[in-house]
Design a protein around this nucleic acid. Sequence first.
DNA 1: AAACACCAGCTAACCGTTTTGCTAGCATTC
DNA 2: GAATGCTAGCAAAACGGTTAGCTGGTGTTT
Lengths: 339, 339
Amino acid sequence: MATIRDVANRAQVSTATVSAVVNDSAYVSPELRTRVLAAINDLNYAPSQAARSLKRGRSQLIALVVADLANPFFARLVWAAEAAVAAWGYSLVLFNSDEKPENERRILARIRALSCDGIILVPVDVVTAQPQRDSEGEQIPTVLFGRTVEGQKTDTITIDNISAARQVTNYLMDLGHVRIGTITGPLHLTTGRGRLDGMLEAMRARGLEPAPNHVRAGEFREDTAYSVARELLTQAEPPTALYVANGVMALGVMRALADLGLKCPDDISIASTDTIPGIGGLRPRLTRTEHPVIDMTNEALRLLVDRINRGTSVDARNVVFQPSLVVGESCAPLRNLGK
Amino acid sequence: MATIRDVANRAQVSTATVSAVVNDSAYVSPELRTRVLAAINDLNYAPSQAARSLKRGRSQLIALVVADLANPFFARLVWAAEAAVAAWGYSLVLFNSDEKPENERRILARIRALSCDGIILVPVDVVTAQPQRDSEGEQIPTVLFGRTVEGQKTDTITIDNISAARQVTNYLMDLGHVRIGTITGPLHLTTGRGRLDGMLEAMRARGLEPAPNHVRAGEFREDTAYSVARELLTQAEPPTALYVANGVMALGVMRALADLGLKCPDDISIASTDTIPGIGGLRPRLTRTEHPVIDMTNEALRLLVDRINRGTSVDARNVVFQPSLVVGESCAPLRNLGK
DNA sequence: AAACACCAGCTAACCGTTTTGCTAGCATTC
DNA sequence: GAATGCTAGCAAAACGGTTAGCTGGTGTTT
C-alpha cells in the first residue's frame, strides 16, 4: 500500500505535513489540507500501525488474558471487552491461559513483545505479582479482573464473592434447608475461596455447619461438577439443597440430576452463584446470583485507559461489584425433614 | 526495556550478531552465542514486535472477525481459534462485526492498518468481495468461515447446510411428521438460505410442502426465536414438529414452550441444525446436528498459514465439512394426526 | 608462496512513521 | 527601511529491529 511518502509526493508537500493532517497535530492551511486528503483518498492510504508503534512507543493494542475461554462467563467477558476496547479506539488481542501458570508466563512475555498498551488479566498465578514492564522498564498498565492475587498493587475489578455466597445460602436456609451441600471452585482462587467462605459464614451465623462429605471440589468445570454431583447425591444422607459455586458447574449438576432421575426442585433444591448466558431460557429457572459482567468490563477499561494516560501517578484502585440474587424455580421449601 | 543495541554492547558484538542469535538466521560461534544469550538474559531483552513488523512487513498477528460474539457458536470458534493461532506462533486480534456491514468495513480497514498477516472472517456483507490489500497492494490472506459470499475467490471453510437441514427434516418425517414448521435464519446468509433450502428439498422429495405460515424468520437470535415461536405455536393449526435453524434459536424455542406450557416432545417435536455448548446438559436433550467447529477452525488456520507462506500461487480452496445428526429426546413419533 | 575460497562477524542502509528544530516569507513596529 | 515576531511548512533525525554487502583472517590448492 501507499506510504506517507507517496502521499507527500502526490500532494506536493512534505511527509511532516501529511502526518500533521492525518493526526491533526499541527495547523495546516486549508489548501494543503485539501490536497493531502485528496492524495490520501486517491492512493487509499492508511498509516502503518507498525511504524507508528515503533515511533510512538504505543501500539493501540490491549491484551485480554482469560483463564478459561471455554467457560461462558469468560466468553461473555470477551464479548464485552471487545466492544469496550473498540469504543476507546484500541484493538483487542486475546489470550487463553487455560488456568496454567506456564501459559500465563508465555503470554505475558508475548504481550510485552507486542508492546501492548494495557492488559486485562484474569490471573492464574502469583507470577503476576511481578508486574510486566514495557520497553522503557515501566510497568505495563494492568487491571486484574475477577480474581486477585495477594499483595497486589495493581488496579482490580472484582465481584463480592462472599456476599454472593451469603445471599444464596441465606435464601436456602430461609426455605428451611439445613442439610446444605456445596460444590466449590478451586480454593486457591479468590473466587473459589470467597464463595465457600461466604457460605460457611452464612451457615455459622445460624449455628449450622455443612457435613464434611457434603462439601466437594468441582473445579469450576461442567464435567467435574457432573460426576461430583452424582457422587454427592447418591450417598446415604444426601443434602436437601445444593449450593453450586458457578454457572458452568450448575449446568453439570442439572445434567447429573436428570441422569439420576431426580426432580428439581421437588427432590432437591439447587442454587448457584454466577450463571451462564442462555441458561435463563431453560426450566426450571435456576436460582442464582447474577454478576454485572458488562458493567465490570466497562469499568475495567475505564481504569485501564485512565492508567495508560496518567501513568503510575495514581494509586491502585480496587473496585468491588455487588452480585444480585435472582430467584428462579430451582429451590423449594423443605417439607419432609427426615426424607 | 533493553534494545538490541544494549544487548550488543553488553555482549561486545554487533547488533547483526544478536539478531542472528535471536532468529537463528546465521551461524554464530558457540562462544559469541553464549555471550549474547547471557546479555539477553541479564537485560531481560525481548525484541520489539513493532520494529520487527516494520522491517519484515509481517506482524505475526491474525485477525478473527466474527459476526456475533454473543452467539455461543462463535464464542466456541473464538476459543478454538485462539488455541490454533497460538500453536502456529501468531497472536489473535479479535473483532466483532455484530452483523453490521459498516462495522465490517471499519474493522477491515483497521486490520489493514495493523498489517495483520491473515484474516479469518465470518462475512456479513459482499463488501468482502473486494479482498483486503496489504501495504504492498497484495491481498491479505483471508479465509471465509462458515458463510460464503457469491463469486468469492478466497479460501472458504463451510458446513454443508443443505445436508444438515435435510438430515434433520428427514428424521422428523421418518417419525411421521407432515405438518413441519421452521424458524429460519436470515435468508441473505448462506447459512440461513441453505438450511431452509435443505428442508424444503427434503420435504418436496416426499411430496410435502410446509404451510406458508409455518415458515418464519428468526434472525438466528434467541429473543426473536422466542417470540416467533410463541406466535407460531398459538395459531389455529400449529405444526406438530419444528425445525429450528440454529442452536441459539432452539434455546429461545424451548423457553417459549416452557412459557406456553407445552411439553416437548409430547406436545411438539423440536429439532435443530447446530447446537450450543452446554445445551447437551439439559432435558429434554435436543435432537440436532453437531458441527465440527474445532476441526473447521484448525483447517481454517492450516489453509491460512499455508496461504501466508505460499501467497496467491495456489488456487482458492473450498473445504466443506459434514454435520452429523445427534438424536436426543426432543422428538416423538406423530401419534394423533388430527390433534 | 601466491592465489583463492570460505566464512564469522561487522557496518550501514532501510522499513514508515513522528517530531524537533529550522527556514523563509510575511506583517508589524519603530 | 531595518529590526523584530510569527507561523506554515520542510528537512532530517530518531524509533529498534533485519539483512545485503563488505572485511579480514584462516585454510586449501596449485
